[in-house]
């Protein structure tokens, strides 16, 4: 039995690095998917709209843990052995894409419809309307809720510990198993989560304030 000292603390910090890596990966892929589904959700084409709506509804209605199990165990039963990092990345990306799609759909719809009319009247194509008029305005609107969601994501990366991936919360369990100092260990784990999430929450609040001011429409 070891004590809870520097090496253990450094191990926790390194694992926190993995939590951040997972967050960044899930955010990157989730953003691509989320952007695509947000725009599909608003497409003129009913088929695209319905596909996006069903995807978002289904993903938001099941625990992300189930997506993870399906990715990890489901595929391994099918004979495809996938490493925990991949399973974790894929399932978190899917989860993120559905939530960002909804946040961003809302942000796009929050741009006044007159902006669509004015830009259409100037002969812009739909992609040009998105690129030059709608998305730049939607981006401002979406920043606070997107950063807010990021805070949830950092905390939710902890679920991937169930497939054996060692991120911060799994590292906490391991250190506790070795030291039997649950109070200290989990205090430190919580403090690290707090150190990551608190600045993000403040950033979200800050963006909400500064981006709100000076918006004339």
């Amino acid at each position: 039995m070891s004590t809870f000292g520097w090496p253990e603390f450094l191990f926790l910090l390194r694992s926190a690095g993995w939590s951040i890596v997972l967050t960044v990966i899930a955010l990157a892929f989730g953003a691509v998917g989320g952007g695509a589904f947000a725009i599909m959700r608003l497409a003129n084409n009913a088929v695209l709209r319905t596909i996006a709506a069903i995807y978002i509804l289904v993903i938001q209605s099941i625990p992300v843990l189930m997506i993870l199990f399906m990715a990890y165990y489901g595929l391994s039963i099918a004979g495809v052995e996938i490493p925990p990092l991949l399973a974790a990345s894929v399932s978190l990306s899917i989860y993120v894409s559905a939530y960002l799609a909804e946040i961003w759909r809302g942000s796009i719809q929050a741009v006044p419809p007159q902006q669509w009319e004015a830009s259409a009247s100037l002969a812009l194509t739909r992609p040009q309307q998105y690129r030059y008029i709608i998305l730049p305005q939607a981006l401002r609107i979406s920043l606070p809720p997107t950063v807010g969601f990021l805070v949830q994501l950092v905390k939710n990366t902890s679920i991937v510990s169930v497939v054996g991936f060692v991120e911060l919360s799994r590292a906490g369990q391991l250190v506790n198993n070795a030291t039997f100092r649950p109070f200290e260990v989990f205090m430190v784990v919580a403090a690290i989560y707090f150190a990551i999430c608190f600045p993000l929450s403040r950033l979200s609040r800050y963006l909400e304030r500064v981006l709100h001011v000076g918006r004339s429409h």
Partner: peptide
Amino acid sequence: DVGIVFQSYNLFPHLTVSQNITLSPRIT
């Protein structure tokens, strides 16, 4: 070939006056 002006102006708030004006001639 048809310009329209609305009651609520509908300028693009994230673009400067000159960008509002030059955008469509440039891209369309």
